[in-house]
C-alpha cells in the first residue's frame, strides 16, 4: 500500500524521531455504487447481515483516499504521516465521501 511512506494514527511514529513537519495533508474521494449493486444490496437487506458489495467498495475508496493523501505528502517532501484520521459521509443516496487526513512529517 505505502511506497516507503510510514503511516500512523498516533502522534509520533513509534520508535522514530520527527525532524520536520509540513502541516496537514489530505486525500478524499467520492464513490457511488452502480445501480445493480444498489439493487443487490437492497435485496441483501431483506435478510440483513453483511453487505459485501458496500464493504468492498468502501475499502477500495478508502485506499484511494489514502493514496491521494500519501501523494500530497510526497509532493511536500515528507516521508511519513502521523495522526491519520478517517471520515466518511453520505453525500447523497448511494454515494459516499471517504476522507483521510493527517500531518506530514519527516522522520529519521
Amino acid at each position: 500500500m505505502s511506497q516507503g511512506m510510514h503511516l500512523s494514527n498516533t502522534e509520533t511514529i513509534p520508535g522514530k524521531l520527527i525532524t520536520a513537519s509540513y502541516g496537514l495533508v489530505q486525500g478524499s474521494t467520492v464513490r457511488a455504487k452502480n445501480v445493480f449493486k444498489d439493487i443487490g444490496a437492497g435485496f441483501k437487506n431483506m435478510v440483513g447481515g453483511e453487505l459485501k458489495a458496500y464493504t468492498e467498495l468502501l475499502q477500495e475508496a478508502r485506499n484511494e483516499a489514502l493514496q491521494r493523501m500519501m501523494m500530497d505528502a510526497q509532493a511536500r517532501g515528507a516521508n511519513a504521516i502521523v495522526n491519520v484520521r478517517f471520515a466518511t459521509s453520505a453525500v447523497s443516496g448511494g454515494a459516499a465521501e471517504l476522507f483521510a487526513y493527517g500531518t506530514a512529517v519527516t522522520i529519521q
Binding site: H6, G15, K16, G49, T55, L58, F86
Partner: peptide, 25 residues
C-alpha cells in the same frame, strides 16, 4: 496512545479493518 512497553520498536504501520452491515427489512 503510546506503546505499552519501553523496548525498542522494529516496525510500525497503520492497519484497518472495515465491514458494512445492514438490518433486515
Amino acid at each position: 496512545s503510546k506503546p505499552s512497553q519501553a523496548t525498542g520498536i522494529e516496525t510500525s504501520m497503520l492497519v484497518m479493518s472495515s465491514v458494512s452491515v445492514g438490518p433486515s427489512w
